[in-house]
Amino acid sequence: MAIVDPTGAEPVPEDRPTHVVRLDAGLVEYRLERRGPAIVVVLHGGHTRAGLPVGEEVFVEAGHTVLAPSRPGYGRTPLSTGTSTSGFADVVGALCAHLGITEVAAVVGTSGGGPTAVTMAARHPGLVRRLILQSAVGTLPWPGRPTRIGAHLLFGTRSERVTWGALRLLLRRAPDTALRLLLSGLTTLPVSDVLADLGPEERAAMIELFCRMRSGHGFLNDLRPTPDLTADIGQPTLVIGTRADRGVPFAHARSLASGIPRAELVESGAASHLMWFGSAWPTTAEKIRAFLSDNRTGGTR
């Protein structure tokens, strides 16, 4: 079964199964895929949601259970459920309690999900053992004024459906042109270099990812400033970034690593913000596996 796009583009593959629960703070959508006893909470970035996994393969291959909630304004989590990073960090803590989860091996914050992951680690040290940040928005001002203006034009309440519908149509009819357009905002390198680093399967996976993205009310909410809680994080932290990232500049990774007391900065050789695509990812994935399996990194202050 597939979702039919109202713009007339080809059908979009259906999301992974998710659930919705009503907590004291409101409704929250989540996906829970049980494997081993170790649990990883994944807070995805902008334009994605619980039913759309991004960069989770490293945790799946390690046998970890994955809990992925949709952040406010994405998927079936309304904007009113824990709108702020602190509010939603507490919502995720309440969701864990609802599911009988008393400890998570790591909270993973990707891109726009980074601030919530940082906040969750700071506010719930008894629950969270480790923190992993991938291409994450940090404490520096973000985004720049041109991007902020463009976001309100393209991803506003009335425009985001049309924007993504048009992009899906372009991705199906002229995929190379569409990828060049989308990647131009995600890399500091020539787009041709990024595309040359992708195999056919990766290129197809990237096209499908872009085809399935939606912004809802969530992306504009992500643009709100968040408090700097990095100094309050006692957990071991892995901060991963790439100098080729135009979406969230590498300076954010440096800032996060310098502000979190027990942080290790890993400079990925990825060619774009989407670090899971390309020849550099296996090396980065191995660092993540080592970080998760090192018992010496567990625990809090």
Rank of each mutant, 00 (worst) to 15 (best):
A62T: 11
L67D: 02
P69C: 07
S70K: 09
R71Y: 06
G73R: 08
G75F: 09
G75C: 12
T77V: 13
S80N: 10
G82Y: 04
T83M: 08
S84L: 00
T85V: 15
G87H: 06
D90Q: 14
A94V: 01
L95W: 00
C96D: 00
T102M: 02
A105R: 05
V107Q: 06
G109H: 12
S111E: 08
G114N: 08
T116G: 00
A117M: 02
V118K: 00
T119K: 04
M120N: 03
R123H: 05
H124N: 11
H124D: 10
H124W: 09
H124S: 12
H124Y: 09
G126H: 11
L127V: 06
R129S: 15
R129H: 13
R130S: 07
L131R: 07
I132F: 02
L133M: 08
S135R: 07
A136F: 09
A136G: 06
G138M: 11
L140W: 09
L140G: 09
G144Q: 13
R145P: 11
R145L: 15
P146E: 10
T147M: 12
G150F: 04
A151L: 08
L154V: 04
L154Q: 08
L154S: 10
T157Y: 11
S159W: 09
T163C: 02
R172L: 06
P175F: 08
D176N: 14
T177L: 15
R180G: 10
S184H: 15
S184N: 15
G185N: 04
L186W: 07
